Amino acid sequence: MFTGIVETMGRVSAVEPLDATESGGNGFTITIDNAKVVLTDVNLGDSIAVNGVCLTVTEFNTERTMFKIGVAPETLRKTNLGEFKVGQQVNLERAMSATTRFGGHFVQGHVDTTVTIHSITKDPPNSLIIHFKVRESDIEFLSYIVPKGYVCLDGTSLTVIDVDWPNRLFSVMLIAYTQSKVIMPTKTVGALVNLEVDPMGKYVENIVRGMVNAGSGPLMTLVENAVEKIVNKK
């Protein structure tokens, strides 16, 4: 579990193909340096979120400045890690401990899909508003994105400003401080960004679906009453 509060920006120093027997085929080993902040108390097998993707540390150097992770084909399909190039920066966050102060929102490190940066506009004096476009095949994920709710974008916990269903867009704002601490401002229109929606929406949907499938009973009556009130209001 993570918070979406990026601890530091590391740097990709190597991307090497994995042996097919290790990864199931077409996987990679990625080496990340400039990572001392997140390696002070690391152990082999620990989890570190890289651009919001929960990955297992398989190796680190004695100086604790560099670590390696293995990336399987399914991860490459769901995330932007397949686009990693040597020299690019990445967001890093260690998994939460029992004593961690909680500053973001509950982030699992399980990326749902990637979205595309649709536009970047300045909001004077020094903020940025970024609009993201959801693929038509991923339109379902907009159901979990609500104004003033949370999303995790490349491992950064951000508050949603607005959702535009007809155009499959949602937007967030980056204040000056955040811009200096995460990789988002280095990206341009058209770039892919990892998206993890707030898992609480999924849990609520699952509960409601279970009640609807049950077909009757007091819980179903509550759902019917709630839906009727929403419809009447609209």
Score class of each variant (00 low, 15 high):
residue 56 T to V: 03
residue 69 I to P: 02
residue 49 A to R: 05
residue 146 V to D: 05
residue 109 G to Y: 01
residue 4 G to P: 07
residue 171 S to C: 09
residue 164 D to N: 15
residue 195 L to P: 07
residue 231 V to M: 13
residue 218 P to E: 15
residue 219 L to S: 11
residue 125 P to H: 08
residue 175 I to E: 00
residue 113 T to Y: 04
residue 231 V to F: 12
residue 100 T to D: 11
residue 133 K to I: 07
residue 149 G to A: 09
residue 107 V to Y: 05
residue 73 P to M: 08
residue 208 V to H: 09
residue 131 H to V: 00
residue 29 T to P: 00
residue 110 H to S: 10
residue 190 G to E: 07
residue 181 K to I: 10
residue 53 V to K: 01
residue 145 I to Y: 02
residue 79 T to M: 01
residue 139 I to P: 02
residue 173 M to Q: 14
residue 118 H to Q: 12
residue 2 F to I: 01
residue 107 V to H: 06
residue 217 G to I: 10
residue 69 I to C: 08
residue 214 A to N: 13
residue 195 L to A: 03
residue 112 D to P: 09
residue 143 S to A: 14
residue 99 T to E: 14
residue 82 G to L: 04
residue 95 A to P: 04
residue 102 F to G: 02
residue 115 V to R: 03
residue 119 S to Q: 13
residue 213 N to W: 08
residue 50 V to C: 14
residue 66 M to W: 01
residue 68 K to C: 10
residue 59 E to C: 10
residue 65 T to M: 07
residue 15 V to H: 10
residue 169 L to C: 08
residue 131 H to C: 10
residue 9 M to W: 00
residue 109 G to L: 01
residue 153 L to R: 06
residue 13 S to K: 11
residue 11 R to C: 08
residue 130 I to Y: 03
residue 6 V to F: 07
residue 218 P to K: 15
residue 231 V to Q: 10
residue 29 T to Q: 15
residue 102 F to E: 03
residue 127 S to W: 05
residue 79 T to K: 06
residue 189 V to R: 13
residue 47 S to L: 01
residue 98 A to D: 11
residue 10 G to V: 03
residue 163 V to L: 07
residue 133 K to F: 05
residue 177 Y to W: 13
residue 181 K to E: 11
residue 111 V to S: 01
residue 73 P to S: 09
residue 223 V to Q: 10
residue 69 I to A: 11
residue 105 H to N: 07
residue 211 M to H: 08
residue 136 E to G: 12
residue 225 N to E: 15
residue 29 T to I: 11
residue 66 M to I: 08
residue 197 V to Y: 02
residue 133 K to S: 12
residue 17 P to R: 13
residue 186 T to W: 00
residue 48 I to H: 02
residue 177 Y to K: 14
residue 173 M to R: 15
residue 185 P to D: 09
residue 74 E to F: 00
residue 107 V to S: 06
residue 225 N to Q: 15
residue 106 F to E: 03
residue 221 T to V: 14
